[in-house]
Nucleic acid binder design. Structure first.
Lengths: 363, 363
DNA sequence: ATTAGGATTGACACCGGTGACATTTTCGAA
DNA sequence: TTCGAAAATGTCACCGGTGTCAATCCTAAT
C-alpha cells in the first residue's frame, strides 16, 4: 500500500451535515464511506460486496471490517439501476386457494430471508387475453431478478415462451413435465392419487367413486390416473359413471356428490380431487342422510386446514406446499450464486389418515 | 421554441445497437429519448412525468405525445435512487389466518393496480425481541414508500413509535383508536359483537356463552364488549363462567366449548370470537352429542370461507377485509397525490345468518 | 416601447452503485 | 537481479432519473 502524507482524513464526510463523530446509524453509510475508510477504491468495495474472488484476502478482511463497523448495506435501488436487474422476486399466481397461496408465499419468504431479495406479488387472471402482455410489461419495468410460477400459471405455455424471450429467470411448480424447458419443482400428484386409491382398496371398498377437478388442470389428470392405477392393482376399476367433475370447488363437490349418490348403486367411498370438493361431498352425503365414515368413506387432496376442522376430520393427501415454495426460491437464487444449478426438485405427496375413512360396514 | 439548423436528428439513438427505425418496444425508451424527440430538456420531461403544474400546456401535450409514441415508462429503480424513496408498499403482518392475509393482499393489490407501486410482503414475528429492528432495517434498505399494518401488527405501539422516527408513511388497520396517531382503517368490531348478541337474544336464547380470543388482541375486548352491551340491552347478562378464552384457534375453540358444555347449566347458544373457534365449537358440541342448531346455536366472526362449508353453514359476522385492504392502500397513496388526506376510514361489520342458529327448542 | 415579476425551461451535479478497461502489484521463473 | 504473466486494484463513464438554482420567456403594467 502506498501512502504519503496519510492524514487521518478517514471520517465518513460524504454527507455535509455529518459534523459529529460516528455516522454509524445516521443517514446510512454508502460505498464511498467504506472506500474512504478502508483506503481503497469503491470498485474494490463493490467487489467485496459481490463476493468477487479477485480480491486479496487481506484487503477483503479489512473492507469487511469497515463494512461491519459502519453497518453498511448496499443500496438495492442503486445496484438495480447499475445492473439493470432488480432485487425483486415476483410471485405470479392465479390460484383460488388462499391456503395454497399463503403457503407458497411463506415458503418463498423462508428462502429469501437473509438475502437481499424481496418478494413482490403479481396475481394475474389467465382468462384475460392480455395477461401475458401485462406480465411482460411488469418485467420490462421492474426487471425482477426472477419469477416463481405455481400452478396453474406454471402450465401456461404461451407465457413460458414469452418469458424465455424476456430477460428473466423463472422456476415453475407443476405436477407434470412441461413442454417448454425450465427449472421446476415437480410434484408427484399421481402418487398421491395412487395412495388414496390404495388406502380405500385396502380398507375393503369395492365400489369407489372419484370427483375430479377441471380437465384444464394437469393435476386433475395426474391425480385421477394414479388413482385408477391403484384401483387396477387392487383388481378394481373406476366405472365411467363413478367419475364426475367437481371443478375443484365446494359447490362443484356438492353437486358431484349428489349426482353420485343418486345412482342406482351409490359408492361406498369417494376420492375427491381436492379438499374443497371433499368438503362439498360431506354436505351432500349428510343431506342424503348417510353417515361418514360408517356409510361412506371420503378422501380429499391437499390437506388444507379445513381438513382437520371437519367432523369427522378428513383423510386426505398432503403436499408440502411451503417447502415447495422454499425450494422454488432456492432454485431461483442459485443462479445468483453462480452455482451449478439443479433443474428439478421433486416432491412426493403423503396420505394423512383421519376419521373420514373406515372399512365398509355392510362387509 | 428556438431552433436553428434543426436537422431531423430525432431518432432515439441512445442505445448504440438501435440501428433500425422505431425503438418502440426494443430495449426500452428512456427519458433521454423522450427529451430528444420532444426537443426539450430531460428535466421538463421529468416534470411531465411527475405531473408538475409548472409546464405549459402545449409543451406538456407534445411531451405526452412522444411518451405515448415511444411507450416510455420511467424506470422505478432510477427514480427510487434519485428520490431516495422506492415504489414499494410493504405489507407488514403477523396474522395466523391465511384467509385474512390473502384478502388484505388482494385489496391492496386492487388499489395498487395501475399505479407505479408494487406490493412487497414483510411478515414478522412479534414475539421475537428484534422484530422492530428488523422492520427498521427493511425500511432503511429498501426505503418503501409506505407500509400497511393490519392487526395485530397495527396494535404494536413501540413499532408505531419507531415508524414515526423513520422516514415512512404508514396506515394501520385496527378495531380501536390507538395511542400513536396515524392514518388508519377503523373497524367497528364492537358493533359486530353487538349484532351477534342481538341476533341470539332475538331468537329467544337466554343462556348464552362467549368464547373469546387472546386478551392481548384489542379485537377480543371490542367484540366482547359489544356482545355484552347487546345482551344487556335485551335484559340479559354474560355470566363470568360463560366467558372462556379460546385463543382464536381451532383447538382453543374445541377446549373452550368442552369446558362450557361441562358446566351444570350448559349454554343454549355460543358466540365465538372468530370462525376458527366456532369451528372448534362444532366439533366439541357434536362430540358431546348435541345437535346444531336444534340443541345449541353457534355464531362466529369473520366469515371465512370455512363458514359456508360447514354443515350446517355457520352464522357469522363479516368484515369486508378486501375492501379494507384497498382502502388502506388508497389512503397511503393519497400522500403521493398531494391530496388532502383523510385520516380515518371506518368499516362496519354485518351479520350473515345461516344454518347454525335457531330458536331454542325447549322453549 | 420598456420593464418588472411570475411562468417556464434548462444546466448540471448527484443518487449509490457497476461495467469495461487501464494500471499497478506480486511473484515465480529465467 | 530481471522479466512477464497473472493477480489485484483503480479510473471513469454511465445506469435513468431528480434537486437546485440559474436562465429565458411571457405578460401586463408603466
Amino acid at each position: 500500500m502506498k501512502h504519503e502524507a496519510d492524514p487521518d482524513d478517514a471520517e465518513p464526510t460524504s454527507s455535509p451535515q455529518a459534523a459529529g463523530g460516528e455516522a454509524v446509524l445516521r443517514g446510512k453509510a454508502t460505498i464511498n464511506d467504506v472506500a474512504r475508510l478502508a483506503k481503497v477504491s469503491k470498485k474494490t468495495v463493490s467487489r467485496v460486496i459481490n463476493e468477487s474472488p479477485f480480491v486479496k484476502q487481506k484487503t477483503r478482511d479489512a473492507i469487511k471490517a469497515v463494512i461491519a463497523e459502519l453497518g453498511f448495506t448496499p443500496d438495492p435501488q442503486a445496484r438495480a439501476l447499475a445492473r439493470r436487474k432488480s432485487f425483486l422476486v415476483g410471485l405470479v399466481y392465479d390460484n383460488p386457494s388462499p391456503q395454497y397461496v399463503v403457503n407458497i408465499q411463506r415458503g418463498i419468504l423462508d428462502a429469501l430471508e437473509g438475502t437481499d431479495f424481496q418478494l413482490v406479488l403479481h396475481p394475474c387472471d389467465r382468462s384475460k387475453p392480455d395477461h401475458v402482455a401485462r406480465i411482460q410489461s411488469f418485467i420490462q419495468q421492474h426487471k425482477p431478478f426472477g419469477l416463481i410460477l405455481p400452478p396453474s400459471v406454471s402450465e401456461d405455455e404461451p407465457l413460458a415462451l414469452a418469458l424465455n424471450e424476456a430477460d428473466v429467470d423463472y422456476v415453475r411448480i407443476a405436477s407434470v413435465e412441461l413442454d417448454t424447458p425450465s427449472r421446476m419443482i415437480r410434484t408427484l400428484d399421481g402418487d398421491g392419487g395412487a395412495a388414496a386409491g390404495r388406502h380405500l382398496a385396502d380398507l375393503g371398498h369395492r365400489n369407489i367413486a372419484h370427483i375430479h377437478g377441471p380437465l384444464s388442470f394437469r393435476s386433475t389428470h395426474e391425480r385421477r390416473a394414479g388413482f385408477e392405477r391403484a384401483l387396477a392393482e387392487a383388481g378394481l376399476g373406476l366405472r365411467p359413471e363413478m367419475a364426475v367433475e367437481g371443478g375443484y370447488t365446494f359447490e362443484g363437490g356438492v353437486a358431484a356428490a349428489e349426482h353420485l349418490l343418486a345412482q342406482p348403486h351409490p359408492p361406498q367411498a369417494i376420492f375427491a380431487g381436492n379438499d374443497e370438493m371433499a368438503t362439498g361431498a360431506y354436505v351432500a352425503v349428510r343431506r342424503a342422510g348417510f353417515r361418514i365414515p360408517e356409510d361412506i368413506s371420503i378422501v380429499g387432496f391437499d390437506d388444507t386446514p379445513i381438513a382437520g376442522r371437519l367432523w369427522p376430520a378428513l383423510t386426505t393427501v398432503r403436499l408440502p406446499i411451503r417447502e415447495m415454495g422454499s425450494a422454488a426460491a432456492t432454485l431461483l437464487l442459485q443462479t445468483a450464486d453462480g452455482m451449478t444449478t439443479k433443474k428439478f426438485i421433486t416432491f412426493s405427496p403423503e396420505i394423512i389418515v383421519r376419521g373420514s375413512t373406515a372399512a365398509p360396514e355392510g362387509q
